[in-house]
Design a binder for these strands. Structure first.
Lengths: 157, 157
DNA sequence: TAGATCGGAGATCATTATAGTCTCCGATCA
DNA sequence: TGATCGGAGACTATAATGATCTCCGATCTA
């Protein structure tokens, strides 16, 4: 119920990881490759690859090909909202099927639907919530990761 | 994404309908049978039946067998929250798989999971939202609490 | 410049969740 | 006593999700 998908989960984890690598200091940015993240969080490599590609397409991270390649945040963690992340993975978020009804599309209940308006309000509230929370906010609890080698595990403080 | 199921939709519609039949005046209560609701909203009869049975089991409506039978609200619309409705249809609501992890269950990412805490906060917020909105609010009599709609999509009425 | 290391992209498959159907039962009431 | 209700379970079809496989092009470096 109201669950977010595994792919979205992976996206959040990956972005959190990428962001924490150069936490608060873009000049110390380091490219992070798919394998590093996959191993750190036990995520299927090729599925994570898809997720990162989607994030790259939507412009939240930038990719670098070739050896020593990988991903970097494309903008500050403060400017990336949870809503943006989820939407770039799962498309526009809507609580009901009729949330994004296009011209000519109607649900069977549309004509006498008695819950559309209140549900849209709920949806707005949820959207606001997710749109007001940034990647930066998610970094708050977790200390910056200082590892340099992919083999090192994140040290909890 | 973050979608609620058709069954939950049906539950909301049905309850809205049942509640509106004796809106603000329990003494005018009238039993409403499955067929009436199914026809009004174009809901598959037998699927709706399942939904109503679930709602009955969880004590939000009471059932009456036999001819002229049907359903009644078991308590005031003010005392039925959206969260309660959704949960009685879809089980405890959780944004992630690990929201309701039982003893001995662990997700593969648990050990180094960096998003669990922030996600639980998001979940709390959503739960609060749904738990503060009642069936009464959906009837349109009183405006919903805490629900603002700044992004104002299709605010009708 | 060849080969190793990256990401990009598409097809494909397995598993699960959802939506919907069918059938039979017991209660109730006229 | 039979028509009309809800209760309950098994069952099927379809869609969404999670995961895998394969091939490609870009890039770095030895």
């Amino acid at each position: 119920m109201l669950k977010i998908s595994k792919k979205a989960d992976y996206a959040l984890m990956a972005l959190q990881h990428i962001a924490s690598v150069h936490f608060g200091d873009m000049s110390h940015a380091r490219v992070v490759n798919t394998k590093e993240i996959a191993e750190e969080y036990n995520i299927p490599l090729e599925l994570l690859a898809k997720v990162l590609q989607a994030l790259s397409k939507s412009g939240m991270i930038e990719s670098h090909n070739g050896p020593k390649g990988g991903y970097l945040l494309a903008r500050s963690a403060k400017e990336i909202t949870i809503a943006q992340i989820l939407e770039s993975i799962e498309g526009p978020l809507g609580i009901t099927d009729c949330s994004h009804e296009k011209e000519g599309e109607f649900c069977m209940q549309r004509e006498h639907c008695n819950i559309r308006t209140p549900l849209l309000k709920v949806q707005d509230s949820i959207y606001q919530l997710l749109n007001n929370m940034t990647l930066q906010d998610m970094l708050g609890g977790t200390p910056p990761i200082t590892i340099q080698s992919p083999t090192a595990q994140g040290v909890e403080r």
